[in-house]
Design a protein around this nucleic acid. Structure first.
Lengths: 153, 153
DNA sequence: CGATTGTCGTTCGAATTTGAACGACAACTC
DNA sequence: GAGTTGTCGTTCAAATTCGAACGACAATCG
């Protein structure tokens, strides 16, 4: 630890590019969603995950893990979505402690309405600018890091 | 817009991997910095940018652009760093509206102390897991998106 | 020069995030 | 089955974020 391995120019460039890009893209997505539907990005992600889930429902903790936010942040955001009528809460049948977040019909409609614009942003700034090889390389790279981070905690 | 181009399986995998990984890594970095030095990630980035800058100083707006936070967030964080004695504010000689954030000697020392641990996290979860080709591919990909985002606003 | 237009950094209010603490229930162990 | 340990989701306080509005100064153009 007394002689840390610094990042060389290539590594530094990679890290800075990743860092800036992820923040810039996040900002842009947030802006688009807010303007188009009054949704935050975490809120949108919650809707997407629920729509993909069986019964259009998920346990709170599982949902938090998927969206990558703290449990308390998820509690708050599901509350917001509930107020908006896009999500409902049910007590889990198999576990009385548990809560199931369920996507409502209105939630489905909202998602259908909003998704195209969102996908368009992701496409136009990221996906469509990358070759198939770059896309694969990025996925591989991201997965390695994701696995490391998920298993280390 | 009536027939949006959805993401196919490969594209979806790429996007989800990128999204989750960036959030997970951000969380891990935040945790490490807080534990090691009581710094937030934006605060650390401010110190790094200033250390790299001529005269160890930068204009507020330029700094905000570099770190990718809003101007108001930067005002707040520079205030925090000023309280901690790591940064000072100077009025810009060439422009009376402007403010220069300057890294203090203590700021330099703090950075020297904290940087190794931070780099270690970036290395062990991201950089060291990628081959040279993957590193290059990621950099290229990120740069394309970054350029697009920076020039579109 | 005087007026307009633009940029700079700050302030403000509202919204959001996080970790810690908590009560309720589940899963094991003996 | 009682006791212990662990998990689930929520609540709370504190910190941080953002955009909009603002006053101060700069730059441009007549």
């Amino acid at each position: 630890m007394t002689d840390p391995r610094w990042l060389d120019a290539t590594e530094m460039a990679a890290w800075r590019a990743f860092l800036s890009t992820s923040h810039l893209l996040e900002r842009r997505i947030e802006e688009q969603l807010k303007a188009a539907a009054g949704l935050t990005h975490p809120q949108y992600e919650i809707l997407v995950r629920l729509a993909d889930a069986p019964e259009r429902s998920m346990r709170m903790t599982e949902l938090a893990r998927g969206v990558v936010v703290s449990k308390s942040a998820l509690t708050y955001q599901v509350g917001q979505l509930e107020k908006a009528g896009l999500v409902e809460r049910t007590t889990c049948p198999s576990d009385d402690r548990g809560v199931l977040a369920v996507l409502t019909d209105e939630g489905v409609r909202c998602l259908r309405r909003v998704a195209p614009g969102h996908v368009q942003v992701v496409r136009s700034y990221l996906i469509d600018r990358l070759s198939r090889e770059e896309l694969h390389a990025m996925t591989t790279a991201m997965r390695k890091t994701e696995d490391a981070l998920r298993s280390s905690v």
